[in-house]
Amino acid sequence: MKAAAFDYLRPADLGEALALLATHKDDCKILAGGQSLVPAMNFRLARPAILVDINDLNELDYLRADADHLKIGALTRHAAFHRPVVEGPLGTLLAKVVRYIAHYPIRQRGTFAGSLSHADPASEWCLVAATLRAEMLAKSVRGERVIAAGDFFHGTFTTALEPDEVLAEIRLPAMAPDWRVGFYEFSRRAGDFALGMAVAAARVEEGTIREARLGVGGVADRAIRLGTLEDQLVGKPASSALIDGIAREARGMIEPNGDIHASPEYRRDLIATSVKRALTEALA
């Protein structure tokens, strides 16, 4: 299990990196954390001709919070989220979710942006980005553009990124202190890929849900934001009956995929359970 040969390029800054991507396009892959790419290369399932290693691009290793967004630079490692990176519900949620991403040593290398660019259907960060309506800042020599999460994920391992683009920054909308959050994931072993998971967030005023976010992951070709169910939650008082009803609806509205660990039927159960538990945590 040794990788196929490749050429290795290590640009010193973003400009150089983008120029290399513009030159080599589909022949090259960006190497950031490498925690998904390198295993695939060791199995020879991925065999890029060129690797552009962006690990020297310290300019991309940042977390910045302003009134509207938490901005996550492309080289921000998972481990950066082990402790809340911002005060309030968003930092709490990210610190909870990160514990489910593979294992401690993987989290030291793997990056938030790398997870999103890789677009594994079982990626926790993809679920968070889709559910919280993140914006992706893509850069290339041609310029930069912002892609909404809803337009970013095209399916298993495919995104809206062009071959010459790098996902330079992710912008997660800020969450006011009165939001409450929940996350649930089921996997076979600690750190394994999710067989089903859900993120929920809600702003509740005097017992009534004013705003809601809800998404499930690990069950189809991409993370799914459950917008219609979010709408159903809004304006209603939080109750276990409401949560059960939403969970039941979520179960019915997704056509899950099947694999050796989870049949579609079983995944439907996990959708319902994940939604129920994430919502219950958020609305507790």
Binding site: Y8, N42, P105
Partner: peptide, 25 residues
């Protein structure tokens, strides 16, 4: 050699990482 077993774990800049998922270069 795919990052699951951890037998190759070493410290890089004092952080534990999988040595099978980094290239020597």
């Amino acid at each position: 050699e795919h990052g699951v077993c951890g037998a190759c774990t070493v410290l890089v800049n004092e952080k534990p990482v999988r040595a099978c998922l980094m290239f020597g270069v």
